[in-house]
């Protein structure tokens, strides 16, 4: 089974891109499955089900989405194997720019949209830096100049990435993306494979339910800001 991991900020167009991609690949219905990792709730299962794509949802809730991803992704692969998929696509919404749900050797796609501002690629970090392919959406509504500057800023952060412009509504651009996917690795399990980058870490009182503000309540791993006196 081929495995592909897709990540991107909320509302960047991941689901639209994946749906158009599946449509473009022209494979028998039910041979591509999707696992959607989200935070609190999601309505994307409706879109997938409407398209006849088997989908499994997972909500990280109060857990860091990346930690949630890494502790469930092997189960996702086993679900895919049991279901007899030829391809499994995991889709995760990165919440902090520090997210990077990618695995070494597994084709990874980052989806970002042109409307997020030209400097955004330089702020996203590992989610963009460690992707093999960067898919840029919503390019049809910004100027050519902004598209080019956006692509330039992506190159700054990830010099090796392939950049593809995809229109999530018309599907323009998905054809080339589908071609890339043919290179995806076949896997039976992810056991002993490694993440491309460490997950965001913190074990502090607030992780375990503390809500009160004040030094007396802050325990564990903390990072304090430095404020310069004016």
């Amino acid at each position: 089974m081929k495995l592909i991991t897709v990540a991107g900020p909320p509302s960047s167009g991941k689901t639209s891109v994946v749906l158009k991609l599946i449509e473009c690949m022209n494979m028998p219905e039910g041979s591509i499955g999707v696992v959607k990792f989200d935070c609190l709730t999601s309505f994307d299962n409706i879109s997938y089900e409407a398209a006849g794509v088997p989908v499994q949802m997972g909500f990280s809730g109060k857990i860091c989405p990346d930690h949630y991803f890494v502790s469930n992704v092997e189960d996702a692969v086993q679900w895919g194997m049991r279901s007899g998929f030829e391809m499994l696509i995991t889709e995760s919404a990165g919440l902090c720019n520090r997210c990077s749900p990618y695995i070494k050797g597994i084709l990874s796609i980052c989806v970002i949209d042109n409307l997020s501002g030209v400097n955004t690629p330089r702020k996203i970090g590992p989610m963009l830096k460690y992707a093999d392919i960067v898919v840029v959406t919503k390019g049809d509504i910004v100027s050519q100049a902004e598209r080019e500057v956006f692509a330039f800023n992506i190159k700054q952060v990830n010099t090796a990435a392939k950049i593809l412009f995809v229109n999530g509504i018309t599907g323009q651009g998905t054809f080339m993306l589908a071609k890339y996917l043919q290179q995806a690795l076949e896997v039976r399990t992810l056991r002993d494979m490694k993440l491309r980058f460490t997950t965001p870490s913190s074990v502090c009182s607030y992780c375990t339910g503390e809500t009160t503000i004040g030094e007396a309540y802050q325990m564990g791993m903390m990072k304090k800001m430095e404020f310069k006196e004016i």
């Binding site: 390019g139 049809d140 509504i141």
Partner: peptide, 11 residues
């Protein structure tokens, strides 16, 4: 390069 009626400047 593309130019269309729907394009805007967002900066």
């Amino acid at each position: 390069a593309q130019l269309s009626q729907n394009m805007n400047f967002v900066m």
